[in-house]
Write a protein that binds this DNA or RNA. Sequence first.
RNA 1: GGGCCCGUAGCUCAGCGGUAGAGCAGUGGACUUUUAAUCCAUCGGUCCAGGGUUCGAAUCCCUGCGGGCCUACCA
Length: 512
Amino acid sequence: MPTEEELIFQRRKKRDLLRHSKYEAYPPRVWRGRINCSVAVARFESAERRSSLIDEGMMSQHVTLAGRVLAIRNMGSRAFVDVRDGTAKVQLNLGREAVFSDTKRPSQKAKWQSEVGIGLNVLDVGDFVQAYGRLFRTRLGEVTLQVESWGLLTKTLRPLPDKWHGISDVETRYRQRYLDLIANERSREIALLRTKVLAAVRLFYIKRDFIEVETPVLQDEAGGAAARPFITHHNALDRDFFLRISLELHLKRLLVGGFDKVFEIGRVFRNEGIDRRHNPEFSLLESYEAYTDYLHVAKMVEDLYRFVAMQVRGTLQIPFGEEIIDLGVPWARITYRDALRKYAGFTYSESTTVDDLRGIAAGHRIATEASDSKDTILDKLMSELVEPQLIQPTFLLDYPSELSPLAKKKPGFPDTAERFELFVLGYEMANAYSEQNDPDTQRLSMLDQAFKAAEGDEEVEIADEDFLTALEYGMPPAGGLGFGIERMVMLMAGEPSIREVILFPAMRDNQR
RNA sequence: GGGCCCGUAGCUCAGCGGUAGAGCAGUGGACUUUUAAUCCAUCGGUCCAGGGUUCGAAUCCCUGCGGGCCUACCA
């Protein structure tokens, strides 16, 4: 009677049948001595290699395994049940005598044999079971547990997705990620890849004597980046807080405080659009190293990406769609101005006027606002004409200082900031500065940003007086770096969608 | 925000103006080593929602909701 309700009803009935027979549907404990499926298989195969198997290929030692039932093949006199834990899948072979027994020790065989009557009839795909027995290899070569005793660990009420096709509905995969993880190996791989990336990044920094710190998510001012923040409310204080949009200003306070090398991997929140590459919350990495500059950081980023790639992929050549991203060769370095000349085909100089730029933009059908400054139009030209062409890893160096309010100016070039952005596959992957540590200069550029905000530009740096006060106590010269972890995972996984590398991506309400 | 596409059984999908279908899962049965087990039988639907056109709508049209891709802004 399989409407969804009826499928659930069937399973509840099986659960009740168990309960009436004094068996637990949700026992609190697993039999002692349980081992991972992968360990059991490894031990069996090692015993095979040592040729120490007795009883015609059967392992001499008993093991207890537990996991979720993926498939049941009932042959009448006996049944094969595929069971998977978090490490591997193992096939169970059950004879007719097998019954459920949670309350009996496996060794009390005589007792539970007399209770035949509860068995496969209460078992469904999706249930968690435990099983005790000895491993052997079947005629077709699969390592299999000859079950002597088994029991239910968790009765599942809802049917699992189709065992062959899995879950392919993208919406279901995101909204009910647990089903995706059960059914689709690729989703598991990506989730595991992400944890490996995080571990590798941490290892990289820790090996370089950075300390990992944590700074506030709830902030008076959401600074350190140009983005619209989320606002939330604190009841006891009866005041609003901003959710952070970057980690920058607090990490720099720690440089003031005397830590030379700090990094943080933290969730930040940006109140902006949702699309294939943007989720409202994402994991940002930022690191700051005193007594270095942005060129040192560039070298470090190259090392970091190579280290992570080797740790998680074992290679420096990462396939991505049609492309193979080669992290191994020295990465291209080109200045902002040279990139414009090379890719956009025009030479920018101090004498270039706003109207010149506007004309060039119009020639490429790039929309500009009347209020756009020279640098804003330049940035639009870069985004449209240059960045999409930067497929292999490329450092774009020396940005217009007006677009870089937190960066130090290049000595002798007041319009140029000591800043680079890293581009791969046409997208910004990292952003770094020689950090501005002149408090008065920093205040002026922040006030300039505030002025723009007053003119209606919502995405500008805010003036954070508390941060400026910290700078007045003196921050050592430092190279700083920021990049989105998701972008890095997407690259390492070869996945073009951010939603594939976030376990629970933001979704609209659905009232289905 | 704009353009294109999608939404049918628990899952994967077909049907695209004329009685809502298949495989898997479920239920009942057969089967002494299966591998998406097989075989027989069987149950199962707000065809995303609402409106319209039509003798008749899952199918055509409109609106809404949700999703995907492309596109614009942000990492």
